[in-house]
Nucleic acid binder design. Structure first.
Lengths: 135, 135
DNA sequence: AGAGTGCTACGACTGTTGTAGTAGGTTTTC
DNA sequence: GAAAACCTACTACAACAGTCGTAGCACTCT
């Protein structure tokens, strides 16, 4: 197996996986209902197809516990989001998070709490920087 | 036309578009060479196909100036990167940039200059925040 | 003017994605 | 115990993505 699994999941399958992340463990019908709640209309069998494909690709697993199969994610939302972000970073920002962060910051859509945390993080970075310079 | 054009460009076409952003205006051969330089081996006709498809989709334009067609992007790298980022934001961060920025910051891969700029931006945000509060 | 070189148009082919129907088994419900 | 509801397996199929080959035209060099 490759050392770093890329998480290349097509859009429609990802929607299903997202629903599964929210409702896991879940049957096909659970996922279907969740999707319906979110305004996404799909046929039962379509959801089944996607879950099957996701399972083949190793992103979810299933157990036949009672009457129906129960699905759970095998990959975390974090992992996938991270990998998605990484792709954007690689493709457009040359892999460096700095410019991206700066761009987002300039738009300034942050809560007060977040600003506090940001400040804190900057202080830390700053401190680390100083330490490194001195050593 | 829709007010907000989504920039949904498949991976392989995007690679070509990236090369075009770097070398524009460029002929098919220019793009091909650039791709080869980047270690991406594609046939001449493949690149041609992608450029044609990109043109059909309205992402690039071409002028027959001399012997060969010369291609230029019609959509800016910024626009596309923005839209890509937005997708990730929507899918995984509920549309709020805060958590994403915080996550990236925690990994701390920033240059000293960037840290300075970040500090500056935070100060601004902070000031704005205070002003708003006072008013 | 013939040989090579380069360009575009068009077609083609395989795999993947998006979406769903049907068939046939199991479970629940009157 | 028959009918209704559910479940999965399998099949299907159009559109799109990724990749390129061939044919034919234009230009270039000798």
């Amino acid at each position: 197996m490759p050392p770093y699994e890329t998480t290349d999941i097509p859009a429609a399958e990802l929607e299903v996986l997202q629903a599964l992340w929210d409702k896991s463990p879940a049957t096909v019908r659970d996922v279907l209902n969740e999707l319906h709640n979110l305004g996404r209309q799909l046929a039962y069998t379509t959801v089944l197809t996607f879950l099957t494909r996701l399972e083949q690709k190793g992103f979810v697993k299933s157990d036949k516990s009672g009457i129906a199969y129960v699905y759970s994610p095998k990959v975390s939302r974090d992992k996938v989001s991270r990998s998605r972000l990484e792709e954007v970073l690689e493709s457009f920002y040359d892999g460096a998070p700095g410019p991206l962060v700066l761009q987002l910051m300039r738009e300034g859509k942050f809560t007060k709490t977040e600003i506090g945390e940001l400040q804190q993080l900057i202080d830390d970075l700053d401190a680390k920087n100083k330490r490194r310079k001195r050593s």
